[in-house]
Amino acid sequence: MDMQNFKTREKAAMAEPKIIARDVNVYYGQSQALKSIELDIAANEVTALIGPSGCGKSTFLRCINRMNDVIESCRVEGRITLEGIDIYNSGLDPVLLRARVGMVFQKPNPFPKSIYDNIAYGPRLHGIASGKDELEATVESSLRRAGLWEEVKDRLDSPGTGLSGGQQQRLCIARAIAVNPEVILMDEPCSALDPIATAKIEELIDELRENFTIVIVTHSMQQAARVSQKTAFFHLGELVEVGETDKLFTSPEDQRTQGYITGRFG
């Protein structure tokens, strides 16, 4: 009995969402981009954010690692917690936050440095690896986890910008996981890639779920259905509906979701 009790409690603790957003409002100057967003993101799951262009899904994604701080006119209100710590109002340094919450962008953006230096960038910044051997091991394991090791192991010194688009994007994923973050944010990571490279990335996302919490913004509903466990539908700055991916795509509760997934708008 006690044992069972403990187990359920542990399960409850595990079910405690990794990221909790409460009443998040975002403004760009005068215009409001996000309206009172309430969203829980579970650990070790892939959460997809879908919705038509300009609906605020990328804005929300960039709130989670405070990338919106860079934009001068942007103002964020509300509460976003990462494992219970308020990332905006608890004096948490955005630099430390971003070491825990990595990000992969829409367009592959490797640094104009060698493949090795691209991966080693984060570990060097945060002093994760002590010594050359450890750094090399970190680079290798990151590239292996991103499924890129076999393709680049003989040319780690050649520039990262010389890889193909899909390889560049996997390089960016490897770069992000090299600092061992807890969460990886992906902003339409496949929109600049061909179908084969896309399939590889999607496969990779599924593998990464084991160790990371992943939030992915995507335009493709097929992609959301393929890779995610939870899906959140944004429309005109509002979070319309969130739920299990299977359920959201088969029996949406909201008319607007229904309209979007059946292709009536967006």
């Binding site: 990338m67 971003r98 990000m103 910044l125 770069r175 600092v179």
Partner: peptide
């Protein structure tokens, strides 16, 4: 995009500039 990439890795502004 390169600045974004560096910031997203947890680099500070001065690290982004010098590195």
């Amino acid at each position: 995009s390169l600045r974004d990439a560096s910031y997203a890795m947890g680099a500070t502004k001065s690290e982004t500039i010098t590195k």
